[in-house]
Amino acid sequence: MKKSFLIAALGAACLPATALHAAGGHHAVDDAALLAPGQCHVESWYARGGGERRLHVAPACRRGPVEWALALERGFGDGDTLGLQAKGLFTAEAAPLALGWSLGVERGHDGPREEALRLNLPATLALGERLAAHLNLGRRWQRHGRGAWTAGAALEAELGGGFSAVAERWREGRGQHARQVGLRWTTPGDGLDLDLGHAHGHGDDGWRGWTLGATWRFGG
């Protein structure tokens, strides 16, 4: 998988209003939480780093116990990607330790078409009213090429005044691993989030990148 794609994770949502907001957005480590029943959101972000630029838009809605997300990603000089994901929970939504699942398909248009299936198992542990930990373990199967295991961990803290911070580290396979720190501001009314993130890859080139994102929630 390309380095720029390591900046993204499809289909993250929001924790209930009484808890922290989910990692979500451009963060690579997902949480075990869903949108409220009947609620929708649109995530968008622009990432630049490692000589690449990408624009990502992902609408998602919850229908019954499952959250559905469609992700459209435009690569400037690096091809486009279309993804579809379903996400659910194994545990009750109010549980201090939540366990979830997500299953998604990706199709790229960079030269020969690339198709992949991705399974992710997120876990979220509430460490208090202002602190939460997220853990991910997953697998990516690629139609033309070798698959890879994925893993990640994140710590999310509410700072007050509508601000929260996330620090995360993730890897895919043996060679691709990176870390990111991000700051989020939830506007008054709790309908719009603004995100800023800085990622650093570990490898031969040690790429660095910045991401600016926004999430709009409605319905429910």
Rank of each mutant, 00 (worst) to 15 (best):
A165W: 14
T186Y: 01
A47Q: 13
A22N: 13
G219S: 11
T124A: 06
H202R: 15
E106P: 00
D193C: 05
E158Y: 13
V29L: 03
R169E: 02
L137W: 10
L89T: 04
T81G: 01
L125F: 08
W141Y: 11
A33S: 15
L82A: 13
W68T: 13
A60Q: 15
C61W: 08
T215I: 04
P188Y: 08
G111P: 06
F218K: 08
P188S: 02
R140K: 14
Q142W: 06
T124N: 02
A22Y: 04
W141E: 14
F218W: 15
P37L: 09
S164G: 10
G191K: 14
R113T: 10
W149G: 13
A17W: 01
H198E: 06
W101C: 01
G206D: 13
N120H: 00
F163G: 02
A132H: 02
V181N: 05
S164T: 06
G138P: 02
Q85H: 02
A22F: 00
H177L: 05
P122S: 09
F5G: 00
L15V: 00
A69H: 03
P122M: 08
A23Y: 00
G77M: 10
A47Y: 10
A58M: 15
E115G: 14
D205V: 09
G111I: 08
L159T: 04
N136G: 11
R54K: 10
H27R: 15
L121E: 03
A19M: 09
E43I: 03
E114S: 13
D110M: 05
L183A: 06
G209T: 04
P112A: 08
A151G: 11
H200V: 12
L192V: 13
W101N: 01
A94Y: 03
R171Q: 15
S44E: 03
L135H: 02
E67A: 02
R74G: 09
P37F: 10
A178G: 12
D80R: 10
N136Y: 08
E172C: 09
G38C: 09
G38E: 07
N120I: 06
H200S: 08
P65H: 08
N120L: 15
A178T: 01
G128I: 12
A36G: 10
A133F: 08
E93W: 05
G50M: 11
T81D: 09
W68N: 03
A17I: 05
G145E: 09
G206M: 09
T81I: 05
L131S: 04
W216P: 00
A133K: 00
L212V: 15
L72F: 10
P188H: 06
D78P: 00
L84V: 15
G220Y: 07
L183W: 06
A165P: 05
L89G: 01
A60V: 01
G191L: 14
R62V: 05
H198S: 03
G11E: 04
Q85D: 01
A60C: 00
A95S: 12
G173K: 13
W216Y: 13
L137M: 05
A86C: 03
H27K: 11
C61T: 10
A17P: 02
Y46W: 14
G152I: 08
G213D: 01
T186D: 06
D195R: 14
A36N: 12
C40A: 15
D195M: 11
S4E: 13
S44M: 12
W45S: 09
A60N: 01
P59G: 05
G161R: 10
A95W: 00
K2D: 14
F76Y: 13
A92L: 12
L127N: 06
E93Q: 12
G160F: 11
G77I: 07
